[in-house]
Structure formats: C-alpha cells, structure tokens
Computed example of a mutant assay.
Amino acid sequence: MSKILGMGNALVDILTRMENDEILENLEFPKGSMQLVDADTSAKILEQTASLPKEQASGGSAANTIHGLSNLGVNTGFFGKIGKDEMGAFFKSDMSAKNIEPLLLESDMDSGKAVALISPDSERTFATYLGAACELAADEITEDLFKGYSHFHIEGYLVYNQPLIEKALQMAKESRLIVSLDLASFNVVEDNLAFLKDMVAKYVDILFANEEEAKAFTQKENHEAVNAMAEDCNIAILKLGKEGSLIRQFNETVQVGTIDANSIDTTGAGDLYAAGFLYGLVNYLPLQKCGELGALLSGKVIEVVGPKMDETRWNTIKAEMDRILN
C-alpha cells in the first residue's frame, strides 16, 4: 500500500485579507512572493494588520499537500519541527485530527508562522517567520524516518538549509522512495538556482512548478519550460493558473484545463494541485486523470480563505472525483 511522507516547514498560517496592496508597498514585498522575516518584522506586520480580518490554519507547503492527500484517504506522515508553545500544539493536533502521522521534533524556539497577505485579486504574499522550523537539521534525518513509506514529498522552501534538503533527498532515494519536489516560490528558485538544478537532476522523480517558478528554473515559458524541466526528472508539472497545467513524461505532454471556480484566495492552490496529482499517481491513473484531479482540488481550495476545506467541500470533491474517474 502507498504511504506518502511529507517534509517541510511546520508553520501556522495567519490568513489576512487586505483591502488594497498598500501594506505590500510599504513593506517593499514583491506581490506573490515569499519573504523570510525575523521575529521583530513578523510582529510588526501583525501589528500593522491588527484591524484586518484574519483566520488561522496549520500550513506550510508540504503540510498542505499532505493534508489534502489524507482527506482523500491516503496514508500519510509529516516530518518537521515545532516549538513547545500554543501554535506548536495547534499544528500537531491539526495533523493528528486528519490521521496524519505527526513526526514532529520540538524546539525551545517559538513555532514558525506565515502571515499570508491576501490581495483583493486573491493573490497572496507570504511573510514567513520560520522560528522552530528553521532548526530542523541534516543530522536529524535518519534512515528510520523513511521506513514504511513509498513516496516522499518535499517543499523547495527548505532550500534555505541546503545540507538539510540534500540529506533528505539523498536518503529518500537510497530508501527507494519516489521523490516529488515543489519548487515553492520564484524568488527562492532565483536565489538557489544552481543548487536546485543539481538536486533535481540527482534525486527528484516528480517536479512541480508554477509559471514564475518554471521561468526562474529554466529561463523558458509554457511548453518550452515544461520540456526543460522534464530533462532531469521523470514527470514535470507546470501549473498555469487559469490556463490549466502541462504535464510532461518522456516524450508525452498532456494539457489539462481548469474547473469553474470563484477565486477569493489562491493560498494552497499549488499545494492542493500536488495532492490531487499524487493521489492519482499512487492509484496508477493516467497522467490526464492525475492532472484533472489536481485541477479539481486546486479549483475548490481557491474558493475558500486559506489552504483547508471543510467536510462538506471534501464530500463534494469526492463526488466529482467519482465522475472524473468513471
């Protein structure tokens, strides 16, 4: 039976809906980017947005993908590091509640948090304080971590600690797991391009990227970008937002559309696409169906604030999955 292990920054998302982009301009944050900030800057941003409506959810890219897979009935686990605080307890209980095996180490630092600044057009910009998450170290990656798992999904945001991500990828491959990597954010890719290219060529079977990430990774766009991505991995997935997605394996390229959706927040869209795609993959579905499941989940999650969906929405998704698969 397939079992998927996720690894990433264990963060609590603080989802903040802005009336305009003035806060981004004041902070000098490129819209749609992920910015690493220190504790003081994180506190300052929370102060500046104190009057705006907020919601809280356990987050982090890989954790969101694992949540999606667990909601679809896939056996999953998640490896990361949290603080011994209220947010750490919240993160752990949220994992356990979804039957995700919480392989969580603890630190004396505060748990990580990501302030998701949501623009009126639904684009989100992250100000991420890693906190305890950044204390995860390469020497904490052991062979035992991968026992019982068939797949390993890791987020590119971990690249701030290159020895950590390289050790994890190497040990996953040595343990014969199928490895998938989500490139995370265009500025992360730009800052670590040579290293990421090396890691993909050596260890990655499945590579996920959106348009901006793919352009940063390949210096190409659309079909040329997905072709270039696929040169160093088994399956390359290029997410094109409203234009759907392109999936390339060997000499075959599959084009997948989108579902009709009323987008209010794109947080988690790429993560849930990965969940749908990986669900199809572990169930041995053709690439077209894998992509359609990814499009279904990403289309549903952008209709809610944050990366999590309630049981009613998941039941709707499962009913629509039956239609796609039959």
Rank of each mutant, 00 (worst) to 15 (best):
S122K: 09
D260F: 02
K98W: 01
N227V: 04
G280T: 09
S185G: 15
A62S: 08
D108Y: 00
G68L: 07
F195K: 14
Y160K: 15
L145H: 11
A261E: 05
G80R: 00
C290A: 09
N192G: 05
E140N: 09
L103R: 12
L285W: 11
L164R: 02
H151D: 10
G88P: 07
I66K: 03
S175N: 14
M87Q: 14
D260P: 01
L246G: 02
G276E: 05
G257V: 06
E143F: 11
G131H: 07
S245F: 01
L272V: 05
P120R: 12
E190F: 00
F146A: 13
K300W: 03
I4T: 11
S111W: 00
F126R: 03
H223K: 15
L193S: 09
N227F: 04
P53V: 06
L46Y: 06
Y279K: 04
Y284E: 15
A116Y: 00
M321S: 07
T266A: 04
M95C: 14
L11T: 02
G306N: 12
Q170S: 15
S175K: 08
G294Y: 09
G268I: 01
E101T: 09
Q249S: 12
V179C: 04
V115F: 03
K197G: 13
I178E: 07
T49G: 09
Y284R: 14
S93K: 12
K197F: 01
L5M: 05
L69V: 06
L169E: 06
E155A: 13
Q170P: 06
N187R: 05
F195T: 15
D198W: 00
V305P: 06
L46M: 15
S51C: 10
A114M: 05
E213M: 01
T142I: 06
F91K: 04
T142F: 12
G80T: 06
E190R: 09
I317E: 12
S150C: 11
T76K: 04
S58M: 07
G257N: 13
K239L: 00
I324D: 11
M87L: 15
P163C: 09
E28A: 12
I302R: 08
S61E: 06
D232F: 09
K318F: 03
Q255L: 00
S245Y: 07
K92A: 06
F195C: 13
N26Y: 10
M199P: 03
E190I: 03
M109H: 07
I324E: 10
K167F: 00
L207N: 02
S245T: 08
L104F: 00
A275V: 06
L36M: 14
L27Y: 11
K202P: 05
N192I: 07
A62E: 04
M18A: 14
A10V: 12
I154M: 11
V256S: 02
M321A: 10
D38F: 03
